[in-house]
Write a protein that binds this DNA or RNA. Structure first.
Lengths: 161, 161
DNA sequence: AAGTTGGTTCGATACATTACGAACTAATTG
DNA sequence: CAATTAGTTCGTAATGTATCGAACCAACTT
């Protein structure tokens, strides 16, 4: 039942905030996820997570389920032990990047639509900003391309491991 | 007082949702911003924005002020006319990218901290995932680099214009 | 079969955020 | 100087979301 050191607690909060903002997770879900990312154990039990986060059973249950469904977190069991042990999904960095790809895809889609719309309906506006809008679209396209390459790298890396 | 066509209304909503998610703007602020991005007029008046969004004066006032303070939107006036005319800031794409840079910076910062922490405290975990974590960090660093280059391009572009 | 343990489900509560309306200022017009 | 227009401020109502507690189920233990 050792206490968690102060600096680790703070890092958990910090990482939690980032995850919350970037992934739209609830505060508790983000904190749990951060806890698992920084945990030195290979899997924390439900009860342990409650103890660390000081949250209620129901909240932890619900938020863990969300994390599992989003594939951020996975669990395993030990024979002769009813508990579940939760840890970050083996592919969590890959998942993170796929999520990035997804949000880039969506943004690119919209930016294209905006450019197309302005070209049709606001020609003078489009002309004024044409190069800027296109510049941005190009940037997004390149970025997507780059993410795809990195994702492939990670895929290969995990296959060989 | 012409009505706004249905397809444009829908595009406004779509763009609005994206802006809301990506920038953390309130729904109304995001809708206003989307409206201005897609507007064919060079600046919409306060009243016109109320009419389009069907929102209350106070909400529009408040959200417009937020958009102006964040430099997403700017306004100009005409001599002998008390109204303000609002339009997307001349630098809105640049602003968008600076925001991206900022969020990447923050994420990179955190990922570095995570890697450093795991290296110190969870050596076995760090070893297992070392290349993945580093891969991700590298990706973020490249991405930041790329954003900086694009930003410079945009800067130069706007200087010459 | 009664009592634990591990975990889920389902309202209720608390909290934060958004949007609103009414009252107000400040400039403009008749 | 009354009336209109442009816009702000502030308290409040409405809405949405996170968390909680209590009741519950299922599996295991005695």
């Amino acid at each position: 039942m050792q206490e968690i050191p102060q600096d680790k607690k703070q890092l958990i909060e910090e990482v939690g905030i980032m995850l919350e903002e970037r992934s739209g997770l609830s505060p508790l879900a983000a904190r749990i996820y951060a806890t698992l990312i920084l945990s030195s154990h290979d899997g924390l039990s439900f009860g342990k997570i409650i103890q660390i986060t000081q949250a209620s059973k129901s909240s932890v249950s619900c938020n863990l389920n969300v994390l599992v469904q989003l594939h951020y977190v996975e669990y395993y069991t030990k024979p002769g032990d009813r508990k579940r042990y939760f840890r970050t999904s083996q592919f969590y960095i890959k998942n993170t990047m796929e999520q990035q790809r997804h949000s880039i895809d969506k943004e690119l889609e919209i930016v294209k639509k905006i450019n197309a719309f302005n070209k049709d309906h606001n020609p003078e506006k489009f002309k004024n900003e044409k190069s800027l809008g296109i510049l941005f679209q190009e940037y997004l396209e390149e970025h997507r391309h780059k993410i795809n390459i990195k994702l492939k790298e990670i895929n290969d890396f995990q296959k060989q491991a």
